[in-house]
Amino acid sequence: MSEYKGAIVTGSSRGIGAVTAQELAAQGLGVVINYRAKAPRANKIVAAIEDKGGKAVAIGADLTATEGPQALVDAAVENFGTLDVLVLNASGGMETSMGENYALRLNRDAQVAMLEAALPAMSAGGRVVFVTSHQAHFIKQVSTMEAYDQVAQSKRAGEDALREFIPKLAEKNINFVVVSGDMIEGTITATLLNRMEPGAIDARREAAGKLYSVEEFGAEVAKMVFADVETGHTELVGGAGDFLKQAEQ
């Protein structure tokens, strides 16, 4: 079992976040399940965790709203007594109904706001994990499909902004890790991209050799909560061979 007690996983009512949250709960952490609008889905994840003897609470919070991040921090402290782990999984930007600059507001500004809210409450020795994609992590060296470019640019901006916190995190002995994956089979982003650019998933599968499922990638994210790595480490899930090769050219 983990020495950590309380965790927040943003965007955890479905997909990668939900898998990550359940994996952490299985390791003995109490987990704040974060959702933006759909409480029943989040409550189902809480029930699944509790059915296995774990601890979780569902909290509705829009991370782009001023009060959103603090609500999650308060929930972790009130329910589990401590906040040790922050998994920054929530992302988006391909939605057409969320207003101007939504990708940047969610993928950069909200990530920073969440970390700023969490940091004063986080325990020494804790960990922050930022979940991203190879398409975003390598966007400065390797171009991506046009439909995803804005999201990729905003996620890379978020990663860069979070990395600037590493010295401040080090003062509390809090470790910062980035987990990057390729397109993930079955995610909303992959589905939307394939709809906008038919064949995109097949092309990425061929280039990568394998695309991870939601369950497989969520398990990898959870592993990096406990992995013995240096702060600032980037875990390239699946190896990212073709991205590394293009980045070197």
Rank of each mutant, 00 (worst) to 15 (best):
K5Q: 14
G6H: 13
G11I: 01
R14E: 12
R14Y: 13
V19A: 03
T20F: 10
Q22T: 01
L24I: 01
L24Y: 00
A26C: 06
Q27V: 02
K38G: 09
A39L: 10
K44S: 13
A47Q: 14
G54N: 04
G54R: 06
G54S: 04
K55T: 08
A56S: 05
G60M: 12
D62I: 01
T64H: 01
P69W: 05
Q70E: 15
V73D: 12
L83A: 10
L86G: 00
L86Q: 02
L86C: 07
L88P: 04
N89Q: 08
E95H: 03
T96E: 14
M98W: 11
M98Y: 12
L106I: 09
R108L: 11
D109E: 13
A110G: 13
Q111F: 06
M114I: 00
L115K: 04
A118H: 08
L119E: 07
M122E: 06
S123C: 10
A124V: 07
V129R: 05
T132Q: 01
S133F: 00
H137Q: 08
K140Y: 00
Q141T: 14
T144M: 09
S154C: 10
R156T: 02
D160S: 11
R163I: 01
I166P: 00
I166N: 13
K172N: 03
N173T: 14
V177D: 02
S180T: 03
G181P: 02
I184Q: 05
T187E: 01
T189V: 11
R195T: 11
M196D: 13
E197S: 15
I201V: 14
I201C: 03
I201G: 09
D202L: 08
A203R: 07
R205K: 15
G209Q: 07
L211P: 08
Y212P: 06
E215G: 08
E220T: 01
V221H: 00
A227W: 11
A227V: 05
V229W: 04
T231R: 02
H233E: 12
T234P: 01
V237P: 00
G239E: 03
F243W: 09
L244H: 07
A247W: 10
Q249C: 03
